[in-house]
């Protein structure tokens, strides 16, 4: 089955992000495919490469990066949600004259149309967070 995931929860703020990660890993391990991960609302915080959680806690942003790169999963961060919350790639940082960027490798910034496209092209779209 072809899944897409919509992730609305920030890491550590709610269970949503961790549940989404575990669902994605389980789906892939079960032989399913993931068409796209779409990070929206507070879920965009999963895409920072600057998170530094305590060493005895799970590093959720790192886990996402590892999973995304290992399986080459199309992973999109909503541009409107991301820029409002300071999740930004180099190109947008230059456009808005910000002095740094923080988008992790493996993620791309794009529009909400990618969420709709994921819904259209997947057998199931599963939402995590509210």
């Amino acid at each position: 089955m072809i899944f897409s995931l919509a992730v609305y929860g920030a890491p550590y703020s709610s269970q949503a992000s961790d549940s989404a990660y575990r669902f994605a890993a389980a789906a892939l391990a079960g032989g399913h495919s993931i068409y796209r991960l779409f990070f929206y609302a507070d879920g965009v915080h999963n895409a920072t490469r600057l998170a530094a959680p305590p060493q005895d806690e799970l590093d959720l942003p790192q886990r996402w990066r590892t999973l995304i790169q290992a399986h080459k999963i199309d992973s999109v961060v909503c541009i409107a949600a991301a820029l409002r919350r300071g999740i930004i790639n180099r190109e947008e940082a230059e456009r808005y004259e910000r002095d740094a960027d923080n988008l992790a490798p493996g993620f791309e910034i794009s529009g909400l149309g990618q969420l709709v496209d994921a819904a259209v092209h997947s057998d199931r779209l599963v939402t995590f967070g509210d």
């Binding site: 929206y40 949600a81 529009g111 909400l112 149309g113 709709v116 496209d117 819904a119 259209v120």
Partner: peptide
């Protein structure tokens, strides 16, 4: 929460996809 606003943005985006 920002949810209502972000839902509306998603609806407007989806409206362009002829679904």
């Amino acid at each position: 929460k920002a949810t209502a606003r972000e839902s509306l943005d998603a609806v407007l985006a989806a409206s362009a996809y002829d679904q």
